[in-house]
């Protein structure tokens, strides 16, 4: 009895020390059972406990995030038309790819892709997994390539910070992971697939509601602004481009009825102030960008 308690203690201690690795427990219980210290039932209970804890703790994989993002984008694209000017699409994608390479996550499962929504609205949405949709109305407000880079870099910041995924209710994700069950080999059973599809649908709605209807938290927006300035500076862009663009939006917000973008992005003045302090703290001075200004004029609307 004493040995049995000692083994339970050691197996659970190993589980905690090694980061909740279910296999560690299974090896421990297998040895425990073969040496007669644990009964088959003890082993089964311990293994089951370890597996369910490991699964519940599992973060969403990048591949899963990619499929979730595709569904979110498919939902958004049901409400907008795509802007089909190849030259401008190429320009935005070039800026995006350049910034992405200087981000904290240069490569993601399906790569970064940028598209322009053909609408006068001011909006930009980062779908999990790397699909970034920016409205023509937003891009038309930019006064330089630095400002375009700021818009794109801010959205890449949301992707790197995984803000979209964080919008999914914790309860829903735990349910999705546990719905997988222990028998993971082969294809899903019919009931399991139906349950996962419902949970997937709910997760898509959670993300959609956050990025389109309610907006991210002020903290998430500020963090994305900060990431944007860091990525811009690394890429060789003038990070003040973000400050300049926020300044435009703040001026417009003051005179607007605060619908649409300005309802999901309140506190533009606070973000502007944060950007100013951040740039000052870093000691980043304004820089010349003649080559980029010339190129921007060729793409200007």
């Amino acid at each position: 009895m004493k040995n049995r308690n000692l083994l339970l203690l050691i197996v659970m201690a190993a589980f905690v020390l090694l980061g909740g690795c279910a296999e560690v427990v299974q090896v421990g219980t297998a040895v425990g059972q073969s040496s007669g210290v644990l009964s088959a039932r003890d082993k089964e209970l311990l293994d089951k406990q370890a597996m369910s804890t490991a699964q519940a703790a599992r973060p969403m994989t990048e591949k899963e995030e990619y499929y979730l993002g595709r569904a979110v984008a498919a939902t958004i694209l049901g409400q907008y038309r795509l802007y089909t000017d190849n030259r401008r699409n190429e320009y935005i994608n070039s800026i995006g790819r350049t910034i992405a390479l200087s981000s904290d996550k240069p490569y993601i499962y399906g790569g970064y892709h940028f598209a322009i929504l053909d609408t006068d609205e001011v909006n930009a949405m980062a779908c999990p997994g790397g699909l970034i949709l920016i409205s023509r109305g937003m891009l038309q407000r930019a006064g330089s390539e630095e400002e375009l880079a700021a818009i794109v870099a801010h959205e890449i910041g949301h992707i790197v910070n995984r803000d979209g995924v964080k919008a999914i209710s914790a309860a829903r994700w735990t349910q999705a992971v546990t719905a997988l069950g222990a028998d993971a080999a082969g294809r899903f059973g019919g009931r399991q697939l139906a349950e996962l599809t419902t949970l997937f649908e709910g997760s898509v709605n959670d993300v959609f509601k956050t990025i389109v209807v309610n907006g991210y938290s002020q903290e998430q927006e500020k963090a994305a602004d900060e990431s944007a300035m860091i990525y811009m500076q690394r890429a060789g862009y003038d990070p003040s481009g973000l400050y300049d663009f926020l300044g435009r939006l703040a001026r417009e917000q003051r005179g607007s009825d605060r619908r649409g973008f300005f309802s999901t992005h309140p506190g533009m003045t606070e973000r502007l102030e944060m950007a100013r302090s951040f740039l000052a703290a870093k000691g980043w001075k304004r820089m010349d960008h003649v080559a980029r200004d010339q190129r921007f004029n060729a793409y200007r609307w």
């Binding site: 969403m60 994989t61 591949k63 899963e64 979730l68 999705a176 899903f188 697939l193």
Partner: peptide, 8 residues
């Protein structure tokens, strides 16, 4: 597993 092409 989880959110896979099959679920999509």
């Amino acid at each position: 597993k989880g959110f896979t092409p099959e679920v999509e």
